[in-house]
Design a binder for these strands. Sequence first.
DNA 1: ATATGTGAAATCTTTCACAGCG
DNA 2: CGCTGTGAAAGATTTCACATAT
Lengths: 206, 206
Amino acid sequence: MPEKSIPDIVVSRLPRYLQALEHLAKDGIQTTSSQELGEFIGISAAQIRKDLSQYGEFGKQGKGYNVHYLIDKLREILKVNRIWEMVLVGAGNLGHAIANYQGFAEHGFRIVLIFDSDPQKIGQKAGSLIVQDANQMVDLIRHRGIKIGMITVPASEAQAVADSLVTAGIRAILNYAPITLSVPQGVHVQYVDPIIYLQRMTYYLE
Amino acid sequence: MPEKSIPDIVVSRLPRYLQALEHLAKDGIQTTSSQELGEFIGISAAQIRKDLSQYGEFGKQGKGYNVHYLIDKLREILKVNRIWEMVLVGAGNLGHAIANYQGFAEHGFRIVLIFDSDPQKIGQKAGSLIVQDANQMVDLIRHRGIKIGMITVPASEAQAVADSLVTAGIRAILNYAPITLSVPQGVHVQYVDPIIYLQRMTYYLE
DNA sequence: ATATGTGAAATCTTTCACAGCG
DNA sequence: CGCTGTGAAAGATTTCACATAT
């Protein structure tokens, strides 16, 4: 598995490949080709082959790719062939929806701590967990060695929460707040902001 | 406003610029530079200048950009200087969280119809709206001339819902279901899938 | 016959660096 | 002087097209 600075843009496509392959597997399909996979997700066959070739030779000439084998390889590459514990900060509407979403667990992401600073929310249930006091956040996260956090607090509090998460040892943040976070080198952030996605589409309308 | 096939990658950055500028405006800042804006959102100053220059000359040499003027211009370019009506399909946990999220309205996106096919959910409230029967979806959407839809149904139903939305005249879809949608040329789709974002980050962990 | 893996070519995107203007 | 707007250069990404393997 040779790995010398593979471009981020390649990495960003791998989860889509994995998702599509899992879909094919669920439909009972054993073998696929870069062509078929590409049509399925709207990416050129050459690009898929080139992307995968960065990590090894997973296909067979004249035959294509074994779906289960490629799923295993991609899970290994993406490091999702294990359970990842996560912390959720913000127990509002969105936080509750996320706490109840089964999709995380199905993909090996387990929410094990939920925090809020609102005394009304602390002690309440969210999903199967009890909302903890945000004051204890840094200690509890550090103690469990959690590396992934999700932020669902209002924009005005998001940067402070991010700072606490980084202090607690979090290395990856999924940010639902509509604000760009400032984090140290080596901490990864991904943004989930529906407004931005909508604005990317209205541009093309009418 | 000369517009001859500006790359999608440029368009995709404009909402981030707008978001950052609105943030600056809220803080009372009147003027900014490509340098300052770039540091704020982690994009090079040259890139911001080049992107904006595709649409006109919005800055003043030696001075920078007037924040409010640039906000106005970006809203015009992105066509968000108006109210957009939207339809939401899927009144589960996530659908309810979205229906209650004030951020949409604050940015001119108004959810005016919510559908579900579950008899238990039809007639119930979601946000300030009543959940309608999905059977009536195509007619009601077409009648109101709505162009933007959000999908929060399970993956297994998402493609069928997308097909109905397209039939109803929807031209932009924000898809929360973990599946790649197949839509005709000219219909835009953006994906909101937290699992994929998490997998993009676990790659870099450990 | 068919589909991979991959150098080379084509295309796209970003950065550089500076003329020009307030 | 400071910062924009922008050609040109550098760099990154995608596509092509084919040798190769089954």
